[in-house]
Design a protein around this nucleic acid. Structure first.
Lengths: 336, 336
DNA sequence: CTTGGCACTCGCTGCGGTGGAGTGCCAGAG
DNA sequence: CTCTGGCACTCCACCGCAGCGAGTGCCAAG
């Protein structure tokens, strides 16, 4: 079956190229991998793969290099990911088990992920939109200044200062507190926003002010979608193609809005998504790949995590690492 | 006065080298700057400056390059910083005035500073240790689970979950709340820690637990000294000397502990501190300079901000930008 | 102390030649 | 129809070499 062998050749080329960073030729291929055919045969296959757009040569009479389409096929045909070694598994648990709060969990995850994959890691905070309101607290800093504190089921805490039009006394504050809690506690964020909106319309005065402030906090895009980036030092391994590749990437990493779009569509937990080169939505990052997956308690993905790296990367290993961290993280959120 | 001219020569070399990134020779020097002497004279001065360690040549028969010691002298002899253009001044105010809370102020400052200097900017959060306790709030998530919220005079809010040994009811909670607030509100963090410590010793039970938790939050190093980094994309301008210079720098930027040591000793607000090359405490960063200054309300420095960049940088401009941002930031904290 | 002159150093650039890895194609064998 | 060995060909990467030019150090004169 020559079709099957071609896939094997492609796989071998991808593996070699990822390992050596150099165009790979027919002779070296048959030697390093146990292909029981001659170099000439492999050459024919390579020519065919090139015609179909899976390979490219930097210049005539050089070895072949996978194209984005080639990586795509390689990833799609990937049957089983490189399993985590027991050392790696141990590293994951010792790394994450010591975390004390949500911030800590997230920042540890970023470090872990960037170390495991030796790439730039990105972890999004569990999104508000699918979590529920655990409690709302109002703290009087002055008679007409409130601190509005929103506590979510994920352990996330958001707060905001609110200047009231008129001062309120302690009993009025207690009433307010139980009012907004009665309306919002236990609800999904999306539902709480609606409920507080109607409350604001129905009860003008301080209640409306507080409710509006809460709605603002809940729908505030910035706090909605916070994320943490780590492992930028791994970019130093790019070496060549520096200004063209690293600079836009570094810029994108600081533009969290862009990053969020990058993580954007990655779906349910369990499924690892790979975006190769120009498949992504950010044109400056057309020479990088993004490996992401969703995570969250009870297998519904509250947020996304993943890595960004060169298209020439160890996909099986990276995908396995991303999946493993996401699973462990989900488990932790389950417990907390 | 030949001594004076030597300083002028050094200054001219530094300026040219910073601008061109290339070793500068005697002829180009007299042309570009209005030195009314011949190249030969300059050559003599350069040889003298090299003997004294202020200059170096990459190789025989190349131009001269300033040494760290040369930059040091240049900076010390700096009488007046490059004034901010009115456009820059406008940029600063429009950039910072829209900020809504402390997080926002800090992150905007980082962006601003990195854009003004085209270097990597670092801004430390106003330190807890010199700020005071504005309010403490206890929120019952469950009968035996409290959320302890600490609000500081800087607007900073810290929170922590606390599992109690025994459940407390609402009235007991109110008592606890007024107890800890009575002891700590209005105090400096350092004093509040002491007061809460004695409270914990005197009143075992839930009060002690709450007090200990608060002490922990207050002395927690991690929350103590948070900082934000921005403008890493500017590292792309390093171009050459890549792996040797950028990689350790990127690593240091993620190691906030290291960065804090770097900002460390920078003193009162108003004074801009410059650490050149190996003068700093981090040996991996011996080819970079750090320009920092303190900032905070009422001219006492709560925290430090600054930039990290190559020793070959525009010191007058950078120092002016750092000072300008720090002043503006201090003013904002004054008002808030 | 400054200046012009002069010999010298040495990195940078462009050039041709060579070696070798790799290819494409073809004819023959299974 | 597929695989294989052979062969001619193509280029890139590497090397050594020469010429150029910017820059220096030193010296003797103003």
């Amino acid at each position: 079956m020559q079709e099957e062998r071609r896939i094997a050749v492609l796989r071998a080329i991808v593996e070699d190229y990822v390992a050596t960073e150099e165009p790979v030729g027919s002779k070296a291929l048959v030697e390093r991998h146990g292909l029981n055919v001659s170099p000439a045969t492999v050459r024919n296959d390579m020519a065919a793969l090139e015609d179909e757009g899976y390979l490219a040569q930097p210049h005539t009479s050089a070895g072949r290099v996978p194209t984005d389409k080639g990586y795509r096929l390689f990833v799609d045909r990937l049957t089983n990911l490189k399993p985590m070694s027991s050392a790696e598994k141990r590293a994951i648990s010792t790394f994450l088990d010591g975390a004390v709060d949500l911030d800590d969990v997230v920042s540890r995850s970023v470090r872990l992920l960037s170390q495991l994959t030796r790439q730039v890691a990105v972890v999004q905070y569990p999104t508000l939109s699918r979590s529920t309101v655990r409690h709302i607290e109002l703290v009087a800093l002055a008679p007409d200044r409130l601190l509005v504190v929103l506590i979510l089921s994920t352990g996330r805490v958001e707060q905001r200062l609110l200047e009231l039009d008129a001062p309120v006394d302690d009993t009025a504050l207690a009433d307010l507190r139980s009012l907004v809690n009665g309306v919002a506690t236990g609800e999904l964020i999306s539902e709480a926003i609606v409920a507080l909106g109607t409350l604001a319309a129905a009860r003008p005065g301080p209640a409306a002010e507080v409710a509006e402030s809460l709605v603002e906090v809940m729908s505030d895009h910035r706090s909605h979608e916070r994320l943490v980036v780590g492992g930028a030092a791994n970019l130093a391994r790019y070496g060549d193609s520096f200004d063209s590749a690293v600079r836009p990437l570094l810029e994108a990493l600081e533009e969290h809005v862009v990053l969020l779009r990058l993580l954007g569509e990655a779906s349910q937990s369990g499924m690892v998504t790979v975006r190769i080169g120009a498949e992504g939505p950010v044109e400056e990052l057309s020479s990088t790949s993004v490996v992401t997956t969703g995570y969250g308690p009870h297998d519904n993905a509250l947020a996304t995590l993943g890595i960004v790296g060169p298209t020439r990367m160890d996909y099986p290993g990276t995908m396995a690492a991303v999946r493993a961290v996401a699973r462990y993280l989900s488990r932790i959120l389950d417990e907390g």
